[in-house]
C-alpha cells in the first residue's frame, strides 16, 4: 500500500495549479483574459464613457467655464448652421470617398482575386501595401505638391491642352477652388488615394471566397458576365465591400490631417474636435462633435446589418 503511494510523484504547486485549471477550465480562461479585458474596459470603454459624459456638460456662455451639469444644450449647438455644415460636409465627403473607393477598388480586387497567380499576386500585394509603408504625412505632403497650382497635374493638363478642362473643373461652384490643392476635389482625391488599400484588401478577400463553381453555375444557367457580376458576385462579395466601406467611411469621418493640408481650410469633424478641445477649451462641444461619427457609424452598421452584410461572418 505504502509502496503504491510512494510511487506517485510528489505534486508541486505547478502540478496542482494545472490540475485546478483542468477541473475548472473557466478559471484559466478568466485568468488569461482578465488583463486584456481590464485594458479594454478601462482604456476603451472608460474613455468612451468619459467622452460621452463630457458631451452632456455645457460651457457657460458668459465665462467660458465648463459647467458640470447634465444638459442637452451642447448637442443643440451641433445643430447651429455652422456646426451642421461641418457634419454635413464631413459625411458627404466620407460617402463620396467610400463610393469612389469601392468603384476603383472592385476591378483591382477582382483581378487579384480571380486571375493573379504566384508572382503577380505577390506583386499585387506589394503594390497595394507599399503606399501603406510610407508615412501618411509624407504621402499627404507629396499630394500637396502634385495638386498645387504649379504642380505636375496642372502642368500636364496645360501641356496636353487640357488646361481649360482643369479650369472648368475648378470653376465648379461648391467643390472648385483656386487650385486642386485648395479645393474639395483635391481633398477628395487624396482621401481616395490614402484609404483605397483599406477597400481593396477586404474586397479581395471576400471575392476570393466566392467559389468558382458559383460563377460557372451562373454561366451554365445562361447568364452573361454582367448578369453574373450583378446577381452573384456582388451579393457574395458584399461583406467585403461593407467591411472596406466601414474602413474608408470611418477613416474619412475621423481624419483631421488631410483637410488641414489639402483643401480650402473649411473644417471637418476631426479638425473641429481638435480646435475646440485644444485652443478653445470647449471640451463639451468637442466631445459632442466626437460623438457624431460614433453615432453615424452605428447607424451605418445597423443598415449594413439589415442588408445582410454580416450574414457571412
Amino acid at each position: 500500500m505504502s509502496d503504491l503511494h510512494a510511487s506517485l510523484p510528489a505534486r508541486g504547486l505547478w502540478d496542482r495549479l494545472t490540475a485546478l485549471f483542468w477541473r475548472r477550465p473557466g478559471l484559466l480562461v478568466g485568468v488569461l483574459i482578465a488583463a486584456p479585458l481590464l485594458w479594454l474596459g478601462v482604456v476603451y470603454v472608460g474613455s468612451l464613457i468619459a467622452l460621452l459624459v463630457q458631451s452632456f456638460y455645457s460651457i457657460d456662455e458668459f465665462s467660458g467655464v465648463v459647467q458640470r451639469e447634465f444638459t442637452l444644450k451642447t448637442y443643440a449647438e451641433l445643430l447651429r448652421p455652422a456646426n451642421a455644415d461641418i457634419i454635413l460636409r464631413t459625411v458627404t465627403m466620407a460617402a463620396a470617398v467610400t463610393v469612389a473607393s469601392a468603384i476603383l477598388a472592385f476591378p483591382i480586387a477582382y483581378y487579384a482575386a480571380r486571375f493573379a497567380k504566384g508572382r503577380w499576386k505577390a506583386a499585387f500585394y506589394l503594390g497595394i501595401m507599399l503606399p501603406l509603408w510610407s508615412s501618411y504625412l509624407v504621402k499627404v505632403y507629396a499630394w500637396k505638391m502634385i495638386l498645387s497650382k504649379e504642380g505636375i497635374i496642372s502642368w500636364a493638363a496645360n501641356g496636353i491642352g487640357a488646361g481649360a478642362v482643369l479650369d472648368a473643373l475648378l470653376a465648379l461652384p461648391g467643390i472648385g477652388g483656386n487650385s486642386l490643392s485648395t479645393s474639395y476635389i483635391g481633398t477628395f482625391l487624396v482621401f481616395v488615394y490614402v484609404w483605397l488599400p483599406y477597400m481593396i484588401l477586404p474586397m479581395q478577400a471576400s471575392l476570393e471566397r466566392v467559389p468558382q463553381s458559383m460563377l460557372e453555375a451562373s454561366a451554365d444557367l445562361g447568364a452573361g458576365g454582367l448578369r453574373t457580376l450583378w446577381s452573384v458576385i456582388l451579393p457574395l462579395a458584399l461583406p467585403g465591400v461593407i467591411a472596406g466601406s466601414i474602413f474608408t467611411f470611418s477613416l474619412t469621418l475621423g481624419d483631421y490631417i488631410i483637410p488641414q493640408i489639402i483643401g480650402n481650410s473649411a473644417n471637418f469633424i476631426g479638425m473641429a474636435v481638435y480646435q475646440l478641445q485644444g485652443t478653445a477649451g470647449n471640451i463639451p462641444l468637442a466631445a459632442a462633435f466626437a460623438v457624431v461619427p460614433i453615432v453615424i457609424m452605428l447607424v451605418y452598421l445597423g443598415i449594413a446589418r439589415k442588408l445582410g452584410a454580416f450574414d457571412a461572418l
Binding site: 463553381s213 453555375a217 454561366a219 451554365d220 452573361g224 452573384v232 457574395l236 458584399l238 445582410g308 450574414d311
Partner: peptide
C-alpha cells in the same frame, strides 16, 4: 459557343447553390 449559350445544364458536385 460559350457555356451560357449551350443547351446544356449542369448539376455541380458541390451543387453551387447561390447562398444569398
Amino acid at each position: 459557343v460559350p457555356p451560357n449559350q449551350r443547351q446544356v445544364n449542369t448539376v455541380f458536385q458541390d451543387y453551387a447553390l447561390f447562398p444569398h
